[in-house]
């Protein structure tokens, strides 16, 4: 049995760094009374949303397998871990910024379109890097077209309304 040193370092090193960062962050937040009910609300909501992202990624991975692409267990688990933890963190930060800003964030079609583009690009770039196959980026064309179409249609409608 062969042990991958890089894998062990990445797995346990990443976990140690993550726990250390989480602990330091909590310590700093406690000093500023940051571990209050708003903090709990934001991070519970972020975790809830991250399960939707994970569900989406599971469907994408199942689709790839159905299209005949071979994916290893480690690759699939790595992508799921990254999607779940990554989306949890990104959504949490986004909600934190949104809650403390004076201008309320609105879920407009333009924002939805940009969101679709960013999410599909990140997802398929990660899959391309992990599988070492750039052809996976082609899968992001359809969601990107949808995102651009949604954003541009909304912008055109807004321009027509203002004229």
């Amino acid at each position: 049995m062969e042990i991958s040193i890089g894998g062990v370092l990445g797995l346990y090193g990443g976990m140690t760094c993550g726990i250390l960062g989480w602990w330091l962050g909590r310590r700093k937040a406690r000093k500023n009374r940051g571990l209050d009910e708003l903090h709990d609300h934001i991070w519970q909501k972020a975790r809830s949303f991250s399960w939707y992202v994970t569900l989406g990624v599971i469907y994408v991975l199942f689709s790839l397998i159905m299209f005949g692409i071979e994916l290893s267990t480690a690759m699939v688990l790595g992508i799921l871990l990254l999607a779940h933890l990554g989306s949890w963190g990104i959504i949490g930060v986004f909600l934190t910024i949104s809650m403390s800003s004076s201008v309320p964030f609105q879920l407009t079609p333009v924002n939805v379109g940009i969101g679709i583009n960013v999410a599909s690009l990140i997802t398929f770039t990660i899959i391309s890097i992990m599988t070492n196959n750039w052809l996976f980026l082609l899968f992001s064309i359809l969601p990107n077209m949808m995102g651009i179409f949604t954003a541009l249609t909304a912008l055109r409608l807004n321009r027509n309304d203002s004229e």
Partner: peptide, 10 residues
């Protein structure tokens, strides 16, 4: 009240 300033803003 023992919360963060962000909570008061929100």
């Amino acid at each position: 009240v023992g919360v963060s300033r962000q909570s008061i803003i929100a």
